[in-house]
Amino acid sequence: MADELKDIVLNYVTKEYLEDDSEPLTYETPLISGGIVDSFSMVSLKRFLENKYGIAIPDDEATPEAFDSVNKIVSLVQRFVAKKG
């Protein structure tokens, strides 16, 4: 699941936030601290993941740190998917 999830998140972030002439992202690119995604725009990514995986990420877990790279987002989602059982 992890690899597929990584690509889903990477593709979503690329399509949602990057302009056509932007540098391509890696799994480790800092998204929020690197100025690619502002904390407002994180909302749609959170809602996308919640809808797709049937999870609810509480606001106190959806921190800028937890959303700061594709790898970090994947860890967060996996944790909530596991909780769901």
């Binding site: 302009e19 407002f40 909302v43």
Partner: peptide, 15 residues
């Protein structure tokens, strides 16, 4: 942006 920050509604953005 500042006005939106003062409000409790969810905020999303478009390109």
């Amino acid at each position: 942006v500042d006005g939106i920050r003062l409000c409790s509604a969810m905020h999303d953005t478009i390109k």
